[in-house]
Design a protein around this nucleic acid. Sequence first.
DNA 1: CAAATTTCTGTAAAAAAATTACATCATAGG
DNA 2: CCTATGATGTAATTTTTTTACAGAAATTTG
Lengths: 303, 303
Amino acid sequence: MDTRAPAAPERTVDIIARLQDRLERGRGAEIRLVESILADPQFAAHAPIAQIAERAGVSEPTITRLARGLGFPGTREMRFHLAQALAIGGAYLREPSVPAEELPLSAQVIAKVASGAHAALDLMSMGLADVDIEGMARQICRASQILVYGTGGGSSFAAVELQNRLFRLGLHVTAHTDPQLQRMSASVLEPKAVVIGFSVSGQAASVRDAVTIARQYGAKAIVVTTPNTPLAKAGDALLPLTFKEDGNLYKPSSTRYALLEAVDILAMATAQTIGPKVLESLRRVRHSLASQNIRNPDLPIGD
Amino acid sequence: MDTRAPAAPERTVDIIARLQDRLERGRGAEIRLVESILADPQFAAHAPIAQIAERAGVSEPTITRLARGLGFPGTREMRFHLAQALAIGGAYLREPSVPAEELPLSAQVIAKVASGAHAALDLMSMGLADVDIEGMARQICRASQILVYGTGGGSSFAAVELQNRLFRLGLHVTAHTDPQLQRMSASVLEPKAVVIGFSVSGQAASVRDAVTIARQYGAKAIVVTTPNTPLAKAGDALLPLTFKEDGNLYKPSSTRYALLEAVDILAMATAQTIGPKVLESLRRVRHSLASQNIRNPDLPIGD
DNA sequence: CAAATTTCTGTAAAAAAATTACATCATAGG
DNA sequence: CCTATGATGTAATTTTTTTACAGAAATTTG
């Protein structure tokens, strides 16, 4: 029997992304198979394995092996996930194969934006596999004060958003998007402060300076940025930002979705580390809003 | 052999509705089976037929018969449609394929955030099928002035973000997150202005007021909000916000991803409507940043 | 550069799953 | 109360999937 344990599946990433990933890594027969599945996923989702194998020019066991390789227990599970991906992402599958010109403009725009966003999230998730997020969360919730830095469209947005998420947890957090304020605030830190620096490019000088200054005064620095950049090297702990721009100039950068994911992951991990007592803080935030005009408890906190 | 031609499948009606229909019409064993499938469609969509039969307390052929009765050639097809229906219904959206308890905390957090984000995007995309985004884009790019309103965490974030995206296109756009400024600015609009109002709840009084005031002065109003809410009724054109909160209190609301998608769709559609001359505006924005420290042309504009 | 080892991949056999054929049982109509 | 129709289960059959194994290809090592 083949006793290799199935490779750890990339559990958070959708099946199409995983299949595309295999195109790079895989070998002969598997590549033919994956190409064939991606070329007509609809077919692969219903057809018996024998027919899929025939079309792809591979043997039947290769299909079972692919399913296992992707982390599924068998082909039935792989089919299930393929069917779901098709239902959802008809648009975002195989961008090039759909002659975009034939669709109405609205549908094209939706497809482009959604596929870019999904792809950005998937890529980001994949790069996070070996990151010690728990450790970062522990540092954040032990900090006496938290300063978040980010400059420029995407990064300042992420910094502000992280401030919004962390203050709800009852933490002392301040975001600075102004370069001067970043350097200034870093030089008057409390002891046991933690700073968090965002920069997509990893080049933002003010953020790097602020991080460096903060560390000189004994603060810990978490940086959310592209690996092997000046900022990445300046921090204590790196949350790597993985992204790929698609060069569509009309479409806003999908990297913002990856940044938002990074923010949410830090915020959620911190909330869980603090534990149930954050629920009280969240309840109070909600309560203060309830006095306004928002009654539905299913709505997100704060509109 | 059973020579009855399979009944023509009701392609227009989804499988869940058809199953519910069977509950009325059907007989003993079939009813038990359908009840069992509807109780846990997840399971029915991937379990082997033998297990489904056992749970429902029916024999295996009954399942094949049900599938035929619904108009499918066999159980494989029924499974396929069930999986798709589940995906669309949002009951199951890119859940990790492995029980969460076995994963380390970090991986759980990543999985929760990522699957929530994917789900929010998918749900949003689906609700956009019949929306006249082109029309909205035309109005935006013809406007003499654009005012964007949003109050509260998610909605103000979206308003500011849309401002960021539209000013890059060379448009005259201002976002207001302050309730007083919203009402005030709406009452001093230029002729041929367009206002865009964001509210997740659809209840935000200041946004609704501003939209109403703006329309009294002849401006067109696009609203991005939940259908059938006060704000939705107050606008000229609705970009419907479709979302479902999952009740995980530790996780930041995934609805922000849907808002970001709405922003990007409006921005991209507008950019395309304006056409190639926006590229010049975008180039200038980039150029002004290049004088700073950012050299890599693959990076998103503005970090 | 050849030998050895590891990794792929197909064939064929086995196991599992789904379907068919048929017998039985229940039920509605006479 | 019997008969006829249709529903349901059992068992046999067919189809589909998976496993086991062996040969081929690729990679590493001496």
